[in-house]
């Protein structure tokens, strides 16, 4: 009898401990001091809709964004390298777009998509005059493919009469002379160090074990903290590219792409990866009440077949 009693006591004691004792011991929080050689990475989705091949947000394989939404006027200077089959071609591009905030362009549901552009006068980069070229906006409006001309943009490139050359780690002057006695201003745009990327792609898509280790020449001037890498794909048999993600990482030369970002891609539609390394300065100017955003960037795109 005594034994049975003690069994019961023990049983209830055990039960109580079970019920109230289910905390786990306190965890230890470790501070991420980036001890590893790899960069922390921030991932952003760029192309929300990949089902429509006519949709474009303006990036092309060069990595240069050709479409701007128009919240501010834009000046872009880019040194661009594209590597395909281990052959690298270089080019430079300067671009300026000025929006007319009084003429918004609406989508069919009434939202403002952009604004019409204006050509206020003469734009010069390094004292060379940029050409005035039509500026298109292509977009998908509820399933209808639309291509609208918003106005003009200013372009200076290697193909210009006097070729534009992007000097890395230096500066490029910008000058705007408005017509009709409008205002006139100029400033120097610093340029980042040249970026040269390398992609170490391993694994196979059929095995679902694709892995990409990205390396680049780390910034030596430490005037750029971040490198952006745009991971895109190219549609089978075409030169149409889709940027999928933007990875932001510290400019220290190494990054491992989270494998799922590669392996979950629907490979039935795409056969090549495009890795675009971008080292850039973004400078905001306010010239007489007009917001002006300046992008000064070194771009290296690498196109690889998906193994």
């Amino acid at each position: 009898m005594k034994i049975v009693k003690s069994y019961i006591v023990v049983f209830f004691f055990g039960l109580l401990l079970f019920i109230f004792g289910c905390d786990n011991p306190a965890p230890t929080e470790l501070i991420q001091d980036n001890s590893t050689q790899e960069s922390p990475v921030q991932v952003q989705v760029l192309t929300k809709d990949t089902s429509n091949e006519y949709y474009s947000n303006g990036f092309d394989t060069t990595g240069v964004a050709t479409t701007y939404s128009g919240t501010s006027d834009v000046v872009t200077i880019s040194g661009v390298k594209v590597t395909v089959n281990n052959i690298t071609t270089s080019s430079s591009l300067a671009q300026a777009i000025f929006f007319d905030k009084s003429h918004p362009v609406h989508s069919s549901n009434g939202g403002v998509m952009s604004y019409l552009t204006i050509a206020p006068g003469i734009v010069k980069f390094n004292n060379q005059r940029a050409a005035k070229i039509l500026y298109h906006l292509r977009f998908n409006d509820h399933g209808i493919h639309r291509d609208t001309i918003l106005g003009y943009q200013y372009i200076l490139s290697q193909n210009s009469a006097i070729p534009f050359n992007f000097d890395y780690g230096s500066a490029i002057s910008f000058q705007l002379d408005q017509m009709n006695g409008g205002m006139q201003y100029s400033f120097n745009i610093p340029t980042p160090e040249e970026i040269t990327g390398r992609v170490n792609l391993t694994g196979k898509k059929v095995n679902g074990n694709l892995n990409a280790l990205l390396e680049w020449n780390a910034s030596t001037l430490s005037n750029t903290k971040v490198v952006e890498i745009i991971l895109g794909v190219m549609v089978k048999g075409t030169n149409t590219s889709y940027p999928l993600y933007k990875l932001s990482a510290n400019d220290n030369g190494k990054l491992s792409v989270p494998p799922k970002l590669l392996n979950e891609i629907p490979f039935n539609k795409y056969d090549r990866f495009v890795f675009t390394f971008i080292r850039q300065f973004i400078i905001h100017h306010n010239e007489q009440g007009n917001d002006l955003t300046v992008y000064s960037q070194s771009i290296h795109s690498i196109i690889l077949n998906i193994p």
Binding site: A26, P27, I31, Q32, P40, Q42, V43
Partner: peptide
């Protein structure tokens, strides 16, 4: 248990 930010965001 150890908890830490793994660098991805």
């Amino acid at each position: 248990d150890f908890i830490f930010n793994n660098g991805q965001s």
